[in-house]
Amino acid sequence: MLKSFDIYNQNNILKIIVALNLLLVGTGSLLYTNRLITRLEAREEQYVQLYAKSIGYLFGSSQANAGDLTFVTDEILKANKTIPAIYVDPNGQLGGALNVDIPEEYNAEQREKLLRQRIVEMRDRHPPLVVDLGNNERGLVYYTNSSLLRQLTYFPYALLAILTALGVLAYLSFSASRRAEQNRVWVGLAKETAHQLGTPMSSLMAWVEYMRSDPDQYDGSITDEIEKDVRRLETITARFSSIGSVPTLKEENLNEVVRQFTDYLSKRISTKVKMSVASQLPAGQTVKINRLLFEWVIENICKNAVDAMKGTGELRLTMQTLPNRSVAIDIADTGKGISKKNMQKVFNPGFSTKKRGWGLGLTLAKRIVEEYHNGRLYVKSSEVGKGTTFRIVLNNS
C-alpha cells in the first residue's frame, strides 16, 4: 500500500526551542505572579483585620484612654491608604469608608447608594470581617483588593497575551523566511534547468534538419513528431524560465487552447486512457491567460489523473460558463479518488501518494491559477474508488 509523504512536513528544531522558551517564560511568570498575588492578598487582609480590630477597640472598649485612641487613629486607621473598606455597624448603618472614590458633588443619599453598591461588589470578592464590639454586638467590615493588587492580578494574562503574540509573530517570521528560501531554491533550480535544456534541444533540432535532408532514408512523419517533441521541450524551457517573474496575460480562445493541447497530450499518455473534451462555451469565448503556463496546469492535472487511474480509465474535460460570467473547466477521472483526510493536503508542496515524484505538480498548478491568473483551483468532488473532479475557475471580466 502506498503511503503519502510530505518532504516539508518536518519538525523545525528552532521553532520548537522558541516555543518551549516562550512556554517556560509564560508559565514561570504566571506562577511567580500568582505567588505574589497570594502573599499580597494575605497582607491586605491583615491590614483590614487590623482596621476591624481598631474599630472594635474604639467603639467597644470603655477602658481606652486618650493616648490609646490617638495611637489607633493616627497609626492604624490612617495606615491603610490603598485598600477600599466600608464599615457597617450592628444596626446595618454605614459607619465609615476608606479609600472609596465618591464624587464630591454627591449628596448624602447618593453617597449611601454608591457605598451600598460597593458593599455588594466587595461581598462577592471577599467575605466581610466581623468586628466584635462587646455586649454581643458585632459590626462588619467589607473590603476588596487595592488597585495595585487588581492590576497585578491581570498582569500575568497580559504577559501571556504578549508572549502568545510574540510566539505567533516568531512562527510567521520563520514560516515566511522558510517559504522565501524555498521559493529562491525552486526559482534557481527552474532557471538552471531551463539553461541546461538549451544545449540538447539545439542539437536535437540539428538532427531533425539532418534527417529531413535525406527523405528517402528517414520517414517524414517521424521527423514531424520528433520536431513536435522538440518544440514541446522549448515550451517547457520557456515555462521554467518564466518561474519567479510576473507572466504576461493576453486574450486567448479557450476552446482552441484546451483542444489543441489535449490533442497533443492524448497521443503521449497511455492508450488505455480515453480522453474526451466537451465544451458549452460560446463560440469564440476568450479568457485572459498565459498560454504556456495554463497548458502546464492542464498537463499537471491530467497526468495526475492518469497516474490515479494507473494508466487505464476515462479522462473527461468539460468547459462551461458560470452564472457570474466566470469560466469553469472540470477535469474528471475514474481513478482511485481522494480520501477525506487527504482532501486538504493534495495541493501541499511535497505531498504525494506515489513512490516516485516530488509532489509539486498540483502545487504549481494551484499557484499558476490563483496567483498568476486570479482564479481558483480546487477539488470539486471525489469518491474513493470512483474518481476525482478538479475544477479550474477563471474570471472573465
Results as ranks from 00 to 15, higher is better:
Lys113Val: 11
Lys113Trp: 05
Leu115Ser: 09
Leu115Lys: 09
Gln117Cys: 02
Arg118Asp: 08
Val120Met: 06
Val120Asp: 14
Arg123Ile: 02
Asp124Cys: 02
His126Ala: 05
His126Pro: 03
Val130Tyr: 01
Leu133Gly: 01
Gly134Asp: 05
Gly134Pro: 04
Asn136Asp: 15
Glu137Thr: 07
Ser146Glu: 07
Leu148Asn: 10
Leu148Gln: 12
Leu152Asp: 06
Leu152Cys: 08
Thr153Met: 11
Tyr154Thr: 11
Tyr157Leu: 10
Leu159Ser: 04
Leu159Val: 15
Ala161Asn: 05
Ile162Thr: 11
Ile162Lys: 05
Thr164Pro: 00
Ala165Val: 15
Leu169Thr: 06
Leu169Val: 09
Leu169Glu: 02
Ser173Arg: 13
Phe174Leu: 15
Ala176Ile: 08
Ser177Cys: 07
Ser177Phe: 13
Arg179Tyr: 15
Arg179His: 13
Gln182Arg: 15
Gln182Glu: 12
Gln182Ile: 14
Asn183Thr: 12
Arg184Ser: 15
Val187Asn: 06
Val187Phe: 05
Gly188Ala: 12
Leu189Ser: 12
Ala190Asn: 13
Ala190Gly: 03
Lys191Met: 02
Glu192Thr: 12
Thr193Asn: 12
Ala194Asp: 05
Gln196Cys: 01
Gln196Gly: 00
Leu197Trp: 08
Leu197Tyr: 04
Met201Ala: 10
Ser203Ile: 10
Leu204Asp: 04
Leu204Cys: 08
Trp207Val: 09
Glu209Lys: 10
Tyr210Leu: 11
Tyr210Val: 04
Asp214Asn: 10
Asp214Leu: 07
Asp214Tyr: 08
Asp216His: 08
Asp216Leu: 13
Gln217Met: 03
Gln217Gly: 01
Tyr218Phe: 15
Ser221Leu: 07
Thr223Lys: 04
Glu225Pro: 03
Ile226Asp: 01
Glu227Tyr: 02
Asp229Leu: 12
Arg231His: 06
Arg231Cys: 00
Arg231Ile: 00
Arg231Gln: 08
